[in-house]
């Protein structure tokens, strides 16, 4: 357990590129917002009353997505070179994503009630587009919404991690093709489209928060467990 946390710490400290890209993106948004506020105050520009923007906190999802790409791509071999074991990497990455997605979800909630509110009062009078809001999670209360968002982000992170971990193998490419095929084939065919809708309802839109959270966690655990077999075959 201790070594898993060490791996998690190493992982979180060594995805600087993910943090930099996210920070730059968010900085650009802040600069854009400041410039627009100044222009509005100066009377040069007037934001339309119904204008909306993406919630500031949601840009943090970029760090989760990029982290889930960089960790299997870069960190595995480096951790092995430091004397780590595959089992430590497996458990450590799980801890990494739990910590990371919980932190991102928490910051998103905080930003939703602070920065977003400020921007709504100053600039985007139509409101902000936040996934907690879009997916209706906020209707269950802020704490449940935080957990729903965390569960969804965890599922997203482990799915990207797992998919990325097999990209150097033929079955990784098969998985990519299968995902594209499912989406493109299922969408035009009504019964199959219904299956897709059912699936997305389960992991995102389900009215019962407990069901949505449980479905996301079980699916995340199932997908992540595939990494045991992937790591066992991975050459260093």
């Amino acid at each position: 357990m201790r070594k898993s946390l060490v791996v998690a710490k190493i992982n979180l400290q060594n995805i600087k590129l993910a943090y930099i890209i996210t920070a730059i993106t968010m900085l650009v948004i802040v600069i854009q917002d400041i410039v627009m506020i100044i222009l509005e105050k100066a009377g040069v520009f007037r934001n339309p009353p119904g204008n909306m923007t993406v919630s500031f906190g949601n840009y943090l999802f970029l760090a989760v997505i990029l982290g889930a790409i960089f960790i299997p791509a870069w960190n595995f071999r480096r951790i092995m070179n430091l004397g780590g074991k595959r089992r430590d990497f497996f458990l450590g990455c799980a801890a990494t994503y739990v910590i990371m997605t919980a932190a991102v979800s928490l910051i998103c909630v905080i930003l939703f009630y602070t920065y977003d509110r400020l921007m709504v009062s100053l600039l985007y009078r139509g409101g902000t587009l936040d996934i907690m809001y879009w997916f209706g999670w906020i209707n269950n209360g802020v704490i449940v919404a935080f957990i729903q968002q965390f569960a969804f982000l965890l599922l997203l992170a482990v799915a990207i991690h797992t998919l990325w971990a097999v990209q150097d193998k033929w079955y990784g490419w098969c998985a990519d093709i299968a995902i594209v095929a499912i989406i493109s084939v299922f969408t035009p065919i009504a019964p199959l489209r219904a299956a897709l809708v059912w699936f997305f309802n389960l992991i995102i839109f389900h009215p019962n928060a407990f069901v949505q959270i449980t479905a996301c966690m079980i699916l995340a655990a199932a997908i992540y467990s595939l990494n045991m077999a992937i790591l066992a075959r991975k050459a260093i």
């Binding site: 060490v6 190493i10 400290q13 060594n14 960190n75 071999r77 480096r78 070179n81 430091l82 004397g83």
Partner: peptide, 14 residues
């Protein structure tokens, strides 16, 4: 290949 961190940090991580 190793993480591009300080030598002291690499030793600590190991």
């Amino acid at each position: 290949i190793q993480f591009n961190i300080k030598v002291a940090e690499l030793i600590k991580a190991a």
